[in-house]
């Protein structure tokens, strides 16, 4: 018979101890991926380690350096935070796209990252925003950039006994803004067929001085597309430049055909989305 444990540790150390002592234990944040996979028989945990009662993992703290987002903070709390929406509208858009109001009441950015779906909406946005992942393990903490966190569909750099504690984002410099766009056939409640996040920095004259473009659902992991960002730097984001960046995003894509879309479609549409994200981010940057 099924005999699964439920644990709700109160500290990171306790959680790591629980993970280290039971190789079948799985971290439970919002459960919107894990419980679906468990019910489908895809995952068979021996224990659920509910990390939502660990204060460090839940909450939003914003200071002059930037943002620290507890890994298990529910998406809804992020969307309700007015200041976040002002500083990182693109990231908040991505968070707001996760599932439904119900799913956002549970699902977290940490879970979105750790589940490591290539289509995870927040991952591309986090990469564009130069986010870093704070990881705790038996040996202490380590920090890795978001673009290095996922290693393939469903796999991450986390070791079995490690926990994602938070993601941290540097405060956007002057005239810097982000945006995230995805393509789904419906208007809501769908998994991205392709997605693109961008962060754009302009100087006072409107010339792009820094840019990052990341794409999702078109490769085994979300990708930082350096060529797309590079194409923008030093330009005033004219039509030709945007097309170059879009082409770079499409070229970086290594999509598959599956039930959500064909490879040819994904490759094309990720360019369209990258362009739209860049245009939107630049428009926001101009207003800052």
């Amino acid at each position: 018979m099924l005999s699964i444990r439920y644990e709700a540790p109160r500290s990171i150390a306790e959680a790591i101890h629980l993970l280290a002592s039971d190789p079948g234990a799985h971290v439970l944040a919002g459960g919107t991926d894990l419980l679906v996979q468990f019910r489908a028989g895809a995952k068979q945990p021996s224990a659920f380690i509910d990390v939502k009662r660990i204060p460090d993992l839940v909450g939003i703290s914003l200071d002059t350096n930037g943002l620290r987002l507890g890994a298990a903070t529910p998406a809804a709390a992020i969307c309700e935070h007015a200041e976040l929406g002002r500083l990182w509208p693109g990231l908040v858009e991505a968070v707001h796209l996760i599932g439904s109001a119900q799913i956002q009441g549970r699902g977290s950015v940490g879970g979105n990252l750790c589940n490591a779906s290539p289509a995870a909406d927040t991952t591309s946005a986090l990469i564009a925003d130069r986010a870093e992942c704070v990881i705790a393990g038996p040996g202490g903490e380590r920090v890795v950039p978001a673009e290095r966190f996922c290693t393939g569909p469903g796999t991450t750099i986390l070791r079995r006994d490690e926990l994602l504690v938070a993601v941290v984002l540097p405060r956007p410099p002057a005239r810097t803004a982000d945006a995230y766009f995805r393509l789904i056939p419906r208007s809501e409640m769908d998994i991205a067929v392709a997605g693109a996040g961008a962060s754009v920095t302009l100087d006072a004259s409107g010339t792009c001085t820094a840019a990052r473009v990341a794409v999702g659902a078109v490769a085994p992991t979300a990708l930082l597309v350096d060529a797309a960002g590079q194409a923008l730097i030093g330009t005033r984001l004219d039509e030709a430049t945007l097309s170059l960046a879009a082409a770079a995003a499409s070229a970086a894509a290594r999509p598959i055909s599956d039930k959500r879309g064909t490879a040819a479609y994904r490759r094309h549409v990720v360019g369209v989305l990258a362009k739209r994200a860049i245009v939107s981010a630049a428009a926001r940057a101009r207003e800052r």
């Binding site: 439920y6 459960g31 419980l35 679906v36 509910d50 119900q102 549970r106």
Partner: peptide, 11 residues
Amino acid sequence: RLVPACLVLAP
């Protein structure tokens, strides 16, 4: 907070 009860563990 609005949540789907099917994706909340009873404990």
